[in-house]
């Protein structure tokens, strides 16, 4: 069981609610994924076209909403969005995203650290989205982040765990849960993250834009579970043939 800020989750797959073709497909896919935690964004209501209300489709008893600060370009905007999310009845959890570069949507480490400090002070449970930077992860942990959410690859790229080596360092050092977010394009990517010891993964695009999002969601559920089981079972290591030689001088000196 995964525990973040005292709340336990049976599923280690977090879902996203963006980019689906319809609220009905979204709901079916999220149910198939087994996810309990789902991210949601906050936006101004489009008064000319109010459209569907996501709150109506998703059962709040079944899904735990994690509001994000998507769109915030600096710490100030992110803090404002977090406060709005809390006022909306979204609880005091927030997935903190500070993304000044609209092209890559890569997170700003300085703004993220600053906003984390402010939000923690205001009583938020903060899960910051970060680049796979081990020192930043530790600094955020010290600032009171409840988990860290390093990216596998820039968001929406589906490139998998481009940052695998750095993720490994983060996982080995972190005292808070590590949720790999962004870049996970296939169930095998999710499985690998879990095999490495990630506590959870967040998948949105790869499910939302799949040919059959519901089946893809089920595939991710299995991959996450398989990866976690493999991690807990203890993987055998790849052999490093180059090291299999004897010490230069041997051990004959020992008495």
């Amino acid at each position: 069981m995964l525990t973040i800020a005292g709340k336990t989750f049976r599923s280690r797959l977090f879902g996203g609610t963006g980019k689906f073709s319809s609220p009905q497909v979204m709901k079916a896919a999220l149910l198939a994924s087994g996810a309990e935690m789902v991210t949601v964004a906050l936006r101004r209501v489009d008064l000319d076209d109010p459209g569907d209300d996501i709150m109506r489709v998703l059962d709040r008893e079944r899904f735990f909403f994690l509001p994000n600060t998507a769109g915030a370009r600096d710490a100030g905007e992110a803090v404002r969005l977090a406060r709005l999310a809390r006022a909306s009845g979204g609880g005091n959890w927030v997935k903190l995203e500070v993304t000044p570069d609209p092209r890559t949507l890569l997170p700003d480490p300085v703004g993220t650290l600053k906003a984390t400090g402010e939000l923690v002070k205001e009583g938020f449970v903060v899960l910051p989205y970060i680049n796979a930077d081990p020192i930043l992860a530790l600094r955020l942990q010290e600032a009171g982040a409840a988990a860290v959410m390093p990216l596998g690859a820039p968001i929406g790229t589906n490139k998998g765990l481009v940052t695998a080596f750095q993720l490994g360092i983060i996982i080995s050092q972190a005292q808070v849960p590590v949720v790999v977010d962004a870049g996970i394009g296939a169930p095998s990517h999710a499985a690998r993250a879990m095999e490495m010891g990630a506590d959870a993964v967040l998948v949105n695009t790869a499910i939302a834009v799949a040919g059959d999002p519901v089946r893809m969601a089920a595939a991710f559920a299995k991959a996450v579970q398989a990866g976690r089981e493999a991690f807990e079972a203890g993987l055998g290591a790849e052999r490093e043939e180059a090291e299999a030689s004897s010490p230069v001088g041997g051990l004959d000196f020992l008495r």
């Binding site: 996203g16 209501v45 999310a85 909306s88």
Partner: peptide, 9 residues
């Protein structure tokens, strides 16, 4: 400003 939750990752 009137705001509400929408889909997002």
């Amino acid at each position: 400003e009137l705001i509400r939750f929408v889909g997002g990752g």
